[in-house]
Simulated scan of single mutants.
Amino acid sequence: MTPSRSWAIAAIRTIEADFNRSADTHLIPLDLPAFPGIDVYLKDESSHPTGSLKHRLARSLFLYALANGWLHARSTVIEASSGSTAISEAYFARLLGLPFIAVMPATVSPDKIAAIEFYGGGCHLVQDPTTIYSESERLARATRGHFMDQFTYAERATDWRANNNIAESIFKQMELEQYPQPAWIVASAGTGGTTATLGRYVRYRRHGTRIACVDPENSVFFDFYAAVANGALPQDVRGHFNLDCGSRIEGIGRPRVEASFLPSVIDTMFKVPDALSIGAMRWLASKLGRRVGGSTGSNLVGVLALAHAMHTAGEQGSIVTLLCDSGDRYGHSYYNDAWLAERGLDVATAQAQIAACAESGAALPRSVQHAPQS
């Protein structure tokens, strides 16, 4: 056996041993008084060692790269990220003794930069968020390293059939609940890998559960999905959908349609105004007694839209969504009133609208766009 093969085998064993030391994440019930008969659960991904849903993705990406022979003992690991994936990848790179560089927009949370550096990683910040891909490729060439490219490989690195992926974990934890097979699972898209895993799993296991995806402002996923659903695709398809700015809800939304985003396994999508995402985040934090991040707020808006529709139709059942990360990383931004005011975000009004829906059954604002699958 060659030294490089021996190193890869030891590296895979190190990552798998780390996984064996970790317990599964919690499934937390959330009471929505306005919707009796509809049970809502939060899959708390903030309890991973690196504090977010992206811990699962980073582990899968490292195992995928190792199994493909892309990493060796002298590799520098490069990743394009808005922060959370980079934190998790820095953790795994340190486990293997590999240098790590995150290429991120300059607007990323300073708390995320600190977390990457805590795990021994370096941060390469760019002013234009659309250049993170080309800069990552350039750095990989310059260091003779490996660009992990989460946006391409997220949907294929995870074993969507089983192996304790997030979908299998949800269904296992729901077995003893009143409605064990969720009517809906709600997730937002960063790479698109999570919705791809969820959508594939429910089809593979023959569940009736439907998948809802939530998109923030300054993202193309919703528009692409709506075009696919309506059959109104341009000739260039994915390449037609591009923005020159990034999402303000860190971790989700993209300026281009990533390869891992699979609209065919998603049953409906919502596009949520940023103020409403942050209002929902703050309302949820008040109910849980701890801070959650902006992407969790976006997910909650999707949950409320579905719960309202189910209640109106006289349906009962369960809805599961993801608590993606802790809000402690966003003290300087989403929990900072001055930061919000500078960006013209009326979060107080949005939070009141969320409370009215969750507690009294009021409809969400019409600014929440909806696109069902055709």
Rank of each mutant, 00 (worst) to 15 (best):
L71V: 13
D267Y: 06
L284W: 08
A229M: 14
P182S: 06
V186M: 03
R203I: 07
Y335G: 13
R5E: 15
C245K: 12
H72A: 15
E175A: 09
L306E: 01
A23H: 15
A10D: 12
P234V: 04
A115W: 00
I113Q: 10
Q150N: 07
G294F: 11
I12V: 14
T158Q: 12
D128L: 00
R94C: 02
K43R: 11
A307R: 04
Q127Y: 15
S295R: 03
G293T: 07
H207L: 14
T130P: 02
S295T: 10
S6F: 04
A11T: 04
P263F: 02
G314L: 09
V228Y: 03
P263V: 00
E155Q: 09
F222Y: 14
F151C: 12
A309K: 14
D159W: 05
A157Y: 11
A140Y: 06
L98A: 07
R161G: 03
L233Y: 04
A355T: 06
I78H: 14
L322P: 08
L125I: 12
V108Y: 01
R343Q: 09
T152M: 04
S88D: 12
Y330D: 15
R74Q: 15
A167T: 05
S136N: 10
Y153N: 10
D337G: 07
L27N: 00
T296W: 00
I101Y: 00
E16I: 06
S277V: 03
T158A: 14
S134N: 12
I319L: 09
Q373H: 12
N242I: 09
T349Q: 08
D244W: 11
A348Q: 06
D337F: 11
A10C: 00
R329M: 12
G192T: 04
D215A: 00
F241W: 05
L125E: 03
R161H: 08
H308Q: 08
P105I: 05
D274V: 13
A356P: 10
H308N: 02
A8E: 08
L53Y: 07
F147T: 02
G51A: 08
T50I: 01
P273E: 00
G122Y: 01
T131Y: 02
Q235K: 08
E137L: 15
P273R: 00
